Amino acid sequence: MKTPSDIVGARVRAVRQRRGWTAAQLAERCTEHGAPEITASVVTDLETGRRDKDTKRRRRNITVDELLALACALDVAPVHLLVPTDGNDPYLVTHDRFVRPARAREWVRGRHPLPWSDPRLFFSEVPAEEWEPPEMTQEQMDRQGRMSEIRREVLDRGPGRRTMSGGVIGPDGEEIPDEGS
């Protein structure tokens, strides 16, 4: 199972490539945003897990400072580097706890506690002026995750299964709407 640092490395690479930037160009943007310690070689090491010369370990761990600087330089929310934006593979929160990516994003955004958490404690640190009730119940998040799995399986079967409205036909013959709908 991939660690959060592994995911950040892969997400940084994917976003950087979509922007059409080299590692050096991303490093230059990091410098412009006040993080000159993120050099092109640091970007490459984070993305590929290249072995550190001194410790002989892969440099995949990322600091909070680096995560925020990279998100700023790439012009994305940190959550979109930290948690996968597609797929439904389990997301490793700690060495022995994992949740679906949708649940992890809700947790990182402060919208929903983790399943094993006490909601009273989780929401106790939210400033009163920022309080909003949770947008989705656990059941709704589980349903969304199951729908994503079904949708991915159906799309993997090949072309010709899409509907006019952009959804797909599920295994039961019913239309599964596009997730963005």
Score class of each variant (00 low, 15 high):
Arg13Gln: 11
Glu174Asp: 11
Lys56Pro: 00
Ser41Ala: 08
Thr137Pro: 02
Leu70Ala: 01
Ile150Cys: 09
Gly160Arg: 08
Arg100Asn: 13
Phe123Gln: 11
Glu130Val: 02
Pro134Glu: 03
Val154His: 06
Trp116Asn: 09
Gly110His: 08
Tyr91Ala: 04
Phe122Pro: 01
Pro119Glu: 10
Val42Met: 09
Pro159Ala: 10
Ala77Glu: 10
Arg58Asn: 04
Asp45Glu: 11
Lys2His: 12
Thr39Glu: 06
Ala69Ile: 01
Arg58His: 04
Val8Tyr: 06
Arg157His: 05
Val99Tyr: 07
Val154Leu: 05
Ile62Val: 15
Pro115Tyr: 13
Gly9Asn: 10
Phe122Asn: 11
Gly9Phe: 12
Ala104Thr: 10
Ala10Trp: 11
Pro134His: 04
Pro171Phe: 03
Ser148Glu: 14
Arg29Trp: 01
Trp107Met: 05
Asp178Glu: 12
Val12Asn: 07
Trp21Gln: 14
Gly145Trp: 01
Arg100Thr: 15
Tyr91Ile: 02
Met164Arg: 15
Ala35Trp: 03
Pro127Ile: 00
Ser117Val: 08
Pro90Ser: 04
Ala69Thr: 01
Ala40Leu: 07
Asp142Leu: 14
Glu47Asp: 14
Gly167Phe: 09
Ala23Arg: 10
Ser165Ala: 08
Arg105Ala: 12
Arg161Pro: 02
Ala35Ser: 09
His95Trp: 08
Val42Lys: 05
Glu37Ile: 01
Glu129Lys: 02
Trp107Leu: 10
Pro115Leu: 09
Arg11Gly: 02
Arg18Trp: 00
Arg109Trp: 03
Asp45Ile: 00
Leu121Cys: 03
Ala102Asp: 07
Arg57Ala: 12
Lys2Cys: 07
Glu37Ala: 07
Arg19Gly: 04
Ala73Tyr: 00
Pro84Phe: 04
Leu46Asp: 15
Arg97Leu: 08
Pro134Gly: 03
Arg162Ile: 03
Gln25Thr: 14
Trp21Val: 12
Val79Asn: 01
Glu149Pro: 03
Val79Met: 04
Gly87Lys: 02
Pro4Thr: 06
His33Ser: 07
Ala27Arg: 09
Pro113Val: 08
Glu130Tyr: 14
Ile169Phe: 09
Thr3His: 14
Arg162Met: 09
Ala27Phe: 02
Ile38Arg: 01
Glu28Gln: 14
Glu47Trp: 12
Ala35His: 10
Arg103Phe: 05
Asp89Pro: 00
Ala128Trp: 08
Ala102Arg: 13
Arg18Met: 03
Pro133Ile: 02
Val64Ser: 13
Pro127Cys: 05
Leu74Tyr: 05
Gln144Gly: 03
Val15Pro: 00
Arg13Thr: 08
Arg109Tyr: 01
Gly145Asp: 15
Val42Ile: 10
Leu70Thr: 02
Asp89Tyr: 00
Ile62Glu: 01
Arg120Leu: 15
Trp21Asp: 13
Glu132Cys: 11
Glu47Asn: 14
